[in-house]
């Protein structure tokens, strides 16, 4: 085990896959000599050279379109969109082209590509550089959607995404880039579509994603001191979705809370709540409760952003009130 930051784990994951497979190419803005604006790609340009680690113009449609054209003709490209908010500038490429072309051609085309992007708030960047957009991607058939919460998962899930034969949107939570954690030595490859139970408790199940996972874990600690034993599940992958693990934990405790960084409407937790209502209704002992950002763009000022996003305190207070 080596201790790596989340950003170092991302670079290590890309390096591992580029070293393994000469068909893996990496493109994006400032990813080469500059090492990425979040420094998540440091060292790749020096190691793999300007042909395999290519800087692009500020042309998100060209970046994603090029990745698609390359993927359908034999490469396994990784494309970076600097901030997930910029996905809106190339959403046609993602939602209309990449997501649908395999289906529309009844399987004539495979698109083994990864779109990496820095996602989420907590950095005081304001409403156009802070969104949590996993649910946009989840709503489009044909896209796999992954959002790791820690360095080991970041490396292992990124490697799995690169090896996956289908397009994967890989959301890196930018507030986690500096977080350190142990990452297995040597080749590390995880599995898409597998949630993880991080903490076992008998009273309620808290389901969280990405940056909300450490908050849910802290909240669970505090709740334990109040005598509420919470299970915490890290969803990790929204598509495919490990409903077996998630709903299995809901059935065990009879209570479900989701913690979502996204604005309220149509967040990923709404789908999980719907599944639980459909499939675990008789096992539920109380209402399903979603803890989200209010249905607003994220404000910039620290006090406003902190108050808008789900906090440890809000999770604790919400669970406590609901479990009373």
């Amino acid at each position: 085990m080596a201790e790596l930051s989340y950003r170092e784990a991302i670079a290590a994951g890309i390096a591992q896959e580029m070293a393994r497979d000469p068909m893996v190419y990496f493109i994006g803005e400032d990813i080469g000599a500059a090492g990425g604006v979040f420094k998540a790609t440091v060292g790749l340009f020096e190691r793999f050279g300007p042909d395999r680690v290519r800087d692009t113009p500020i042309s998100e449609q060209a970046i994603i379109g090029a990745a698609m054209g390359a993927a359908m003709t034999g490469l396994r490209p990784i494309a970076e969109i600097m901030f997930s908010d910029f996905l809106a500038t190339c959403w046609d490429m993602i939602a209309n082209q990449i997501a649908k072309t395999r289906y529309m051609t009844d399987g004539q085309v495979a698109l083994p590509l990864v779109i990496r992007t820095a996602n989420g708030g907590g950095t005081r960047f304001g409403a156009q550089h802070s969104q949590s957009l996993e649910n946009w991607a989840m709503a489009v058939p044909g896209l796999k959607v992954v959002a790791p919460s820690n360095p080991a998962d970041a490396k292992g899930l990124l490697a799995a995404a690169v090896r996956d034969p289908d397009p994967v949107l890989f959301f890196e939570q930018k507030s986690l880039y500096g977080v350190k954690g142990n990452v297995p030595d040597g080749e590390h490859v995880d599995t898409l579509g597998s949630a993880k139970v991080l903490r076992d408790g008998k009273d309620c199940t808290i389901v969280a994603l990405a940056a909300m996972v450490p908050k849910a874990m802290q909240a669970a600690e505090q709740l334990a001191s109040d005598g509420i034993q919470a299970t915490v599940v890290d969803v990790r992958s929204l598509v495919p979705l490990d409903t077996r693990t998630i709903l299995g934990e809901v059935v065990k405790t009879g209570r479900l809370f989701t913690v979502e960084e996204n604005p309220r409407l149509c967040g990923w937790g709404a789908e999980i709540a719907s599944l639980a209502a459909d499939e675990c209704f008789d096992d539920l002992d109380g209402p399903i409760v979603r803890i989200t950002t209010p249905h607003v763009p994220l404000p910039a000022a620290d006090v406003l952003e902190d108050a808008a996003m789900p906090s440890v305190e809000r999770i604790v207070a919400t669970v406590r009130k609901s479990m009373r």
Partner: peptide
């Protein structure tokens, strides 16, 4: 849409 995609196939 297909202009960048064609460029990608050419890149490949």
């Amino acid at each position: 849409a297909h202009l960048p995609i064609a460029a990608g196939a050419a890149w490949s």
